[in-house]
Write a protein that binds this DNA or RNA. Sequence first.
DNA 1: TCTGGCACTCTTCTCCTCTGAGTGCCAAGT
DNA 2: ACTTGGCACTCAGAGGAGAAGAGTGCCAGA
Lengths: 337, 337
Amino acid sequence: MLDDRKLAVLRAIVEDYVSTHEPVGSKALVDRHNLGVSPATIRNDMAVLEEQGYIAQPHTSAGRVPTDKGYRLFVDRLSTIKPLSAAERRAIETFLANAYDLDDVVSRTVRLLAQLTRQVAVVQYPSLTRSSVRHVELVPIATQRLLLVVITNTGRVEQRAIETHEDVPDEAIAHLRALLNARLDGCWLTDVPDVLADLTEQVPVGERPLAATVLSVLLESLVEKHEEKIIIGGAANLARADLSQSLRDVLEALEEQVVLMRLLGEAGDPSSLTVRIGTENPHEGLRTTSVVATGYGAGDQAVARLGVLGPTRMDYPGTMGAVRAVARYVGQILAGS
Amino acid sequence: MLDDRKLAVLRAIVEDYVSTHEPVGSKALVDRHNLGVSPATIRNDMAVLEEQGYIAQPHTSAGRVPTDKGYRLFVDRLSTIKPLSAAERRAIETFLANAYDLDDVVSRTVRLLAQLTRQVAVVQYPSLTRSSVRHVELVPIATQRLLLVVITNTGRVEQRAIETHEDVPDEAIAHLRALLNARLDGCWLTDVPDVLADLTEQVPVGERPLAATVLSVLLESLVEKHEEKIIIGGAANLARADLSQSLRDVLEALEEQVVLMRLLGEAGDPSSLTVRIGTENPHEGLRTTSVVATGYGAGDQAVARLGVLGPTRMDYPGTMGAVRAVARYVGQILAGS
DNA sequence: TCTGGCACTCTTCTCCTCTGAGTGCCAAGT
DNA sequence: ACTTGGCACTCAGAGGAGAAGAGTGCCAGA
């Protein structure tokens, strides 16, 4: 269907358009790449590529611009991920190594990604479902009011206030705390519901109302909530990117956690990159943007995702390289801490 | 210098310009406000106002536009803060009342402010300096690694990891934890350094290295860090606001915590509103924006600040009303929780 | 001190033309 | 069967002229 030269032409069009931001014509193409044929030949190839939907012209007498389908082919078959320079690697390493807690790691990561790719960076907090419990703390902070704190092996700390509706003796709290820690230490968060299923029966009758309350809050906060904590950075880069779509739509989309979640996609193998191009995105407001995302985590299992968002006309090889490299380093940091 | 009518003219110019976004001329002014005089008279007044620097014309044959100085006079002497409608009040109340922890309160507040004012909302987390300690927790999470958690009366939880560089027996940790809690419970954070000044001497010699390490981290995290945690929302509203300055500059400024801090200004009496107009702002990139900010807190002392940022051409009375109302309700929520 | 009249200044809109990049197609060459 | 040079054609964008319109400043009179 598409011989080698046509593919080379498509690649050249994508590369030129990405760097110049202007529709690229047949003459410019032969000038900048040594394709060994004349502009007329290129024109024929272009006509075929257009017919197949890989490129399009904004208007009759203009050059060609890649379509989403064209970018897709480029990403899938015509490009290789560009590794970072040694200097960039070193910069990443030192920048991330100085982080002192999870919040700091995440916020540094988001800034780093934004700076490296000159696009909008999106980082999801390490998910709880892939973590295990390191410690559970139960602290009275007022009469009838407890604070439940759960610390995970990814360094994340979850906190929830609990209303007890009745006074609770300190011993009951201490007892429950000890019980929870004994049961949950090292336990995968996904297993927590099972492990705690019969816990209410294990406590003295007098403490059961307390145990039930604490338990429901614990399960709720761990399992249901807080999959979704995501932060973004580098929004200013959007202003530079003159999207054909209104910038407002994009900014609006980025403020909705739900959209961001779907944007990053399903957690999967951390070594694979997901690229969503233009209309492949699950959200109306992001029709003219692309997302490059991947999982990251301590060890070989992804605990969360991160990525960048930019105009469909982006430097895919470079962006993919940066995203992959950052994800790896963050994984190392998390594993080491 | 400026008689009543000239002030009325200035007020009318500000109001019209804010609502139409177009330079306002003498004729339009007499049409829309019943000033009781002819356009020619207004023109004379305008000439005086311009000479004094309250208004300016974009070009010779255009209407007048308020200058920063003009807005300043308007805010100081010509406008009254517009109270919210009953429906708006109710909406605020129910929206904030459903929050279940501090993070949630803050994130709801920021969304609320952005929606209410249709501008960019900026909310600072309740500052630690005005809070008191409710509980200190010290948890071993690995060998040679502790987690320090401080819970304050504003519901904020601070966490820091501590490297001990040597193995520490559990009893030493328990001892130190008990000591810290005994000393610090209810203590104002600003007093913490004084209270802990001689703590190292109070522990057995063997535990002193541990105590010293924990102490330095504690002081550092409480006193120095984390004044600055600020979140923003409604950035999409900027796109609608066509600022004369490049949107990019504004977005960039909003990503720097330091700039945001200075933007909100010094904490002061929570009942007073700070308005910074255009060039009064401490940052280059925000020359065409104004900030309306105020303190908020549980009780009568401000523990942090919140506000909104928008184009200098904003509805000051309405914005000020919304900011004040939201600050009050948030204060109530914090006090009640 | 206010007012109506008037000349003047600019921006903005529209219409027009011109230019140039880029195309599609065709007939000839390899 | 593919490639190439030539050529006519299309169309966006730049640039300019002209008209319209909004708004001003100033002045003389009430």
